[in-house]
Simulated assay, not measured.
Amino acid sequence: MDRSVYVAMTGATQIMRAQSEVAHNLANASTTGFKAELSAFKSIPIQGEGAQTRINSVANGNGWDMSAGQQQTTGNDLDVSVQGQGWIAVQSADGTEGYTRAGNLRMDADGLLTDSRGNTVLGGGGPITIPQAANVRIGSDGTISVVPQGQGPNTVTTIDRLKLVNPGNDQLQLGGDGLMHLKDGSQAQADPDVRVVQGTLESSNVNPSDVLVKMISLSREFEMQVRSIKAADENAQSASKLLQIG
C-alpha cells in the first residue's frame, strides 16, 4: 500500500492531538489566571528504504502563553492579582509546593486560606490561617493584616505574608494538578519584588475568537487528511483491479 495512507493517518492523529489542546484552552477561557497552552506542527522526514518523499507532520507542545490576562475589579477582600511577573505559592494535595496566578482565595471553616481549588496558600512560615476578623487587608507586598472582631478600625494586626515567587517562566512546568512546579522539583525562594493588588483578579489570557478560528482551521485540516486516506485506498483498489486484469 502507498505510504501516503500512513502519512495521512499520522497527520489526522496529530491534528486530533492539537484539537484537544485547543479545546482545553477554550474550556478555560473564563478560568481565573489560566495560561493558554501553545503548540505547533513540525515536519519530520520518514526514515526507511526508498526515496525521502514522505514527511510526517507532528504536533509539538511549545509551552504556555505567559502573557498576563486582563485585570478585573471584584472588590472582594480575598481576591488578589499578581502584577507583572510572579506567582502565588500554594501547597497541593500531595504536599508539594506549586504556583498559581489564580488569586481568588478562600477561607475554610477553620480559617485556613486556600485557593479556589482547595490548595493551601503558603506564607512565610507555611500555611496561612486567618482568625475571625471584621476586616482583612492584603498589602501590595502580600502582607495580610486584619482588624479583630470587636476592635476598632485603628487596631490592626499583621497575620502573615503571602509567599510570592518569581523563579522565571523557563524554570516552570505544568503539573497534573493544574499548578506550575519547578522543573527540578525544588521550591522557589520568596521574591520581595513581586507585587499584588487586592480586590482584583487576573482573567484567563485565552482569546476565545482566536481559539475558535484555530479550531475551525484544524477541523478543515482533519477533513483533508481523511480525504487523503480515502484517495490512497481508492488508488490501491484501482491498482489491484488492474493487476487482476493483467
Rank of each mutant, 00 (worst) to 15 (best):
S4L: 13
V5Q: 15
Y6R: 06
T10C: 00
G11S: 04
G11W: 00
I15H: 01
M16L: 06
R17E: 04
R17D: 08
Q19W: 01
Q19C: 10
S20Y: 12
E21N: 15
V22N: 12
A23G: 10
A27R: 08
N28Y: 00
S30R: 14
T31I: 04
K35R: 14
L38R: 14
L38C: 13
A40D: 13
A40N: 11
K42W: 02
Q47C: 12
E49Y: 00
R54A: 13
G61E: 05
G61K: 03
D65C: 03
D65A: 08
G69I: 13
T73F: 01
T74M: 13
N76Y: 03
N76C: 07
V80W: 10
S81D: 13
S81T: 09
Q83I: 14
G86H: 08
A89Y: 00
V90R: 14
Q91W: 01
Q91I: 00
A93Y: 08
T96W: 06
E97F: 04
G98S: 14
R101V: 04
A102C: 14
L105I: 05
A109K: 10
D110E: 05
G118R: 04
G123Y: 09
G124A: 09
G125Q: 15
P131Q: 05
Q132F: 11
N135G: 05
N135D: 06
V136E: 09
V146M: 08
V147D: 11
P148M: 02
P148G: 05
P148V: 01
Q151H: 12
P153C: 02
N154D: 02
T158I: 04
K163R: 09
P167V: 03
Q173N: 11
G175H: 02
G178I: 00
D184G: 06
Q187T: 12
A188T: 07
A190W: 14
P192E: 00
V196E: 06
V196A: 09
V196C: 14
V197C: 13
Q198R: 04
E202P: 10
S203H: 06
S204W: 03
P208Y: 02
I216Y: 05
E223D: 10
Q225N: 04
R227A: 02
R227W: 03
A236V: 08
S240P: 14
L243G: 09
I245S: 08
